[in-house]
Simulated assay, not measured.
Amino acid sequence: MLPLPDVAERLGLSITRVHQLVRDGHLLAFRRDDVLVVPEDFLGPEGVVKGLAGTITLLRDAGYREDEILRWLFGDDPTLPGTPIAALRSDRGREVKRRAQAMGF
């Protein structure tokens, strides 16, 4: 878990821009010990992991809460195999998005 200032530094953005990414749903953040943090797995070498924002949007549109989205992203899925976030990190976003869309029905 990374506090938002560390996320800003890793992404080369201002802290206000990171807050905007969270507000816009491109990143999920939650409070841990009164500090807003983002899972480090959400960040890759080029920035926010490709496909993460779209996956978050699909799940939100399907009625999932942020804690449920986090649980799903980090939960093991034997059909991928692995976790959805690991699949996104390895450029298998299409498969992750298919599963996220199917969860909405």
Rank of each mutant, 00 (worst) to 15 (best):
S90F: 07
V37F: 12
R23A: 14
E66Y: 00
D6V: 06
V35M: 11
L4Q: 03
F105R: 06
G47Y: 00
R99N: 05
R32V: 11
L88H: 04
R94V: 14
E46W: 05
F30G: 01
R10A: 13
G12P: 13
D6H: 11
T83C: 08
L52K: 11
P5K: 15
R31S: 08
P5H: 03
A86M: 10
L21A: 10
G25Q: 07
L28W: 00
E95I: 11
D77G: 14
V18A: 09
P78W: 12
F105Q: 15
G54Q: 07
D76C: 03
G51L: 07
A87R: 09
H26M: 05
R92K: 07
V37K: 01
L73P: 02
R32Q: 13
R92G: 05
L52P: 01
R10C: 04
T55W: 06
G104Y: 12
Q20V: 12
R92S: 09
R60E: 02
V38D: 00
A87V: 03
L70A: 03
D33L: 11
L13V: 14
V38S: 02
I15Q: 12
R31I: 03
I15D: 15
A29Q: 04
A53V: 06
M1G: 10
P5S: 11
P39I: 05
H19V: 07
L43M: 10
D76Q: 14
R17W: 06
P39H: 09
R99M: 15
A29M: 09
L4G: 03
